[in-house]
Design a protein around this nucleic acid. Structure first.
Lengths: 181, 181
DNA sequence: TATTGTTATACTCTATAACTATA
DNA sequence: TATAGTTATAGAGTATAACAATA
């Protein structure tokens, strides 16, 4: 490590003892000081950036549990959704999860091969195939949901239960609110 | 559309008028009712899932502005970080952003080719190359940060300013808190 | 021995066009 | 004409091993 900037970043946190410090120069004098590296500035001020980092931090705790059952995050999402909403077809799963239809084909085929879900022709629409969890699929979905919920509590142990609920509620509103225009 | 499940999902929201409804059957009787498709159940209860969906929802508003300057999310992150912390080397950027070193090589090379950043040999360490924004790079970073901040406010217009700040603070704590073990 | 920057490479994820069967 | 499922494919993102130069 050679620079001041490096040492400030290393921790990744923005603790109280680190609040007021000199500007990290190497910029021309007279330039506006932007607040260098405080969490409220730059990337730290962006909801998108922080959502992504939080997602990855939480995922790190969860991914192992999914891998133990040979499920990727999206495979698990499909299984869980079909568990809670049996009868959905592929197109509806696509819309609900925001995954493009072609990218669901292999996922659904794999879940079916592993006998976690079944595809049943819709008698009312010859094009549509309803997705239904098998008994084993439902068991796995419920169990993994519980395991992942616990893993997430561990991953977000720095939050109180109330704060975690607040976070969940805010996130849900962000992505599931009807968009304007 | 053929199933009940489909109609319930279509809106993506969980409005009050939709709160109490019968279980979506096609599962064996006597099975525990899991709360089918309410936001608090299944995927909706998972922080990771909601972080990811919120990230993608916000990104949809922001990506256009980055593309206008031929920047991908990670390229912009590097530029913004280097703008606020000039002098960081590639390894430090890697740690700060959680991007693996080999994946930064092309990004940094491109930013340098476009004269948005410069690489200066560290006199104290012959291996290290300090990254510094050019005047144009700093201008672009500041401008894009402002544009993206506004785009995010539009993307999260369903939140009050206070709620947005709360969300940001909670997300930051999730990913930047020191992890246990 | 350890670290910085790098190459090569593989794997995963995401996106688009176009085809078929059905509506 | 439109929609559901699918194929093929391209592009973007992410990951690991290993090397040269330097510490």
């Amino acid at each position: 490590m050679s620079s001041d900037a490096a040492r400030r970043l290393a921790a990744g946190t923005d603790g109280d003892e680190d609040r007021r410090r000199g500007p990290s120069r190497s910029r021309s004098p007279g330039e506006v000081r932007t607040g260098v590296s405080r969490a409220e500035d730059g990337l730290g001020a962006l909801v998108g950036y922080n959502c992504r980092r939080a997602y990855l931090a939480v995922l790190e705790h969860s991914i192992r549990h999914m891998n133990e059952h040979d499920l990727r995050p999206t495979s698990f999402s499909v299984l869980s959704l079909v568990h809670h909403e049996p009868g959905l077809n592929s197109r509806q799963v696509s819309k609900a999860l925001g995954v493009h239809p072609p990218n669901l084909v292999a996922i659904i085929a794999s879940l079916e091969t592993r006998k976690l879900i079944e595809r049943r022709p819709d008698p009312a629409d010859g094009r549509s195939l309803g997705l239904h969890p098998t008994a084993e699929g439902s068991r796995l979905a419920s169990r993994l949901e519980r395991v992942l919920a616990r893993a997430e509590i561990a991953a977000t142990a720095m939050l109180s239960d109330a704060e975690r609920e607040t976070l969940l509620a805010l996130l849900r509103r962000v992505w599931s609110s009807p968009r304007q225009a």
